[in-house]
């Protein structure tokens, strides 16, 4: 145990938690922007055929754009100093968030039109799931110098001389990210179950939408349909 704890500076955990809070902030910003854009796209998709076609094409493009490349694109294509590193990471996640929200919102609208109000509310746990996926994805910021949680871990790992010490540090990182993530997903499962029971009780068919994972980061609830 000494091998593990000794190399870590006393303020490491505080720095790590501060870094993880940056991940949450980035995810919050990305989701907020994604909600706005995704809602507009969802409305366009359920309107006339012209809007539907354009929105579907845009959503398809956003779905195909790799977050990591979008991040580097924003960093290099925009005039210098336009956006901070945190904002660049947040905006790079918006295509994923917006496409996810649009898909979930289209489902919700269809459920509502079909008379299933409760199934419509399944959009809420889906958005909560997207938030946690975005938290994990925001670790890409480490590649562009954003001081988020993974960047803190990797910096500390540079100073550790042994692979064993590094692996223990990485395990701490996984635990710090994993605990809120798994707790969040447990909460989502609970909400979904409650909604499902309510829906069954009301004889409404509730089918929960499942979003696609953002590049490399995957939601653990994989039972529901994953529309591509």
């Amino acid at each position: 145990m000494n091998l593990v704890i000794d190399p870590l500076p006393p303020h490491f955990m505080a720095t790590l938690l501060a870094g993880i809070s940056v991940n949450f902030a980035i995810a919050g910003m990305a989701l907020t922007l994604g909600l706005g854009l995704g809602s507009l796209l969802a409305l366009a998709r359920v309107q006339g055929p012209l809007g539907r076609g354009a929105a579907a094409m845009l959503i398809g493009l956003m779905r195909a754009a790799p977050t990591f490349v979008v991040m580097f694109f924003l960093l290099n294509a925009l005039p210098r100093g336009t956006l901070s590193g945190v904002m660049v990471v947040a905006i790079s996640l918006v295509p994923y968030a917006a496409a996810y929200v649009a898909d979930s919102a289209v489902d919700a609208i269809r459920q509502y039109r079909a008379g299933s109000t409760l199934a419509c509310f399944l959009i809420l746990p889906n958005i909560a799931r997207a938030f946690f996926v975005l938290v994990m994805s925001s670790s890409a910021g480490a590649a562009v110098g954003v001081a988020e949680g993974i960047a803190v871990i990797l910096r500390q790992a540079e100073k550790l001389p042994t692979l064993g010490g590094k692996l223990v540090l990485f395990a701490i990182g996984i635990a710090c990210f994993g605990i809120p993530l798994q707790a969040g997903f447990a909460l989502i499962r609970l909400i979904q179950r409650r909604l499902g029971r309510l829906a069954a009780r009301n004889r409404d068919t509730a089918s929960g939408g499942e979003g696609r994972p953002v590049d490399g980061v995957v939601p653990p609830l994989s039972g529901a349909a994953n529309r591509g």
Binding site: S137, L167, G173
Partner: peptide, 18 residues
Amino acid sequence: TVALQSSPILLTLVITAA
């Protein structure tokens, strides 16, 4: 599976490379 789900992809990548 739970550990991999809890690890941001960047960290998984670094661990695998290490």
